[in-house]
Design a binder for these strands. Structure first.
Lengths: 103, 103
DNA sequence: TGCTTATATGATTAAATGCTCATATATCAT
DNA sequence: ATGATATATGAGCATTTAATCATATAAGCA
């Protein structure tokens, strides 16, 4: 396999490698939201949220549209939820296995 | 959802957010391998590879066993392949969609 | 036009990451 | 015990990432 594949793949993982970005993706599960809603929900600095949104957009996970002075972000890559679920399931399974070992 | 969930989840993604680590996971697909095989395969510094292996192990993705002077690493979390495949499929789909837009 | 609000971006700083070189540790063979 | 080999780890440095503050840009309103 062309090694560059691993590089682009790594970029995707990097985009999800921050808790705040994962929270954003979850928050957008039910549909698009205005930045003006996302920021107070996360209770983080507006500029910081803006950069995390930009990172997710760069990775192709989110997309955005402008409406007047507002910007609405939405999930572009719906597969992201399947990926997030798989990771969570996988980690839960690991914990269960460890629990068995310790019991 | 408890926000700490996003933190542990992010750790998993971080573990896969480097091309070399993804290559390692792929290399171990057919079974465990000795570090003495992994290093020349990757053509990277032994100490560097050692650290990447440690990172994957910390994340629960790999495990290792010692045999004499050698150490064998193997995939502990088999779900990782499903996750890697999903990400790749998802990215391919995005490219196809973009191609349609540009055509 | 000038004012206000929403969002993005530049600059700075602190912290984390990745790499390399050198060295430590462990095991095995002589 | 000595030496050789495999792997891990400490120290140092360069790069990247994240956060914050301040400011730029753009749209809408008076």
């Amino acid at each position: 396999m062309d090694n560059r594949v691993y590089e682009v793949q790594a970029e995707y993982f990097k985009a999800l490698s921050h808790p705040l970005r994962i929270r954003i993706v979850h928050y957008l599960k039910e549909g698009e939201r205005c930045v003006c809603k996302i920021v107070p929900y996360l209770k983080e600095e507006q500029s910081n949220v803006s950069r995390h949104l930009a990172a997710l957009k760069r990775a192709g996970i989110l997309s955005s549209r402008k409406e007047g002075v507002s910007v609405y972000y939405r999930v572009q890559d719906e597969n992201v939820y399947e990926i997030l679920d798989l990771v969570l399931d996988s980690m839960k399974k690991a914990v269960r296995e460890k629990a068995v070992i310790l019991s």
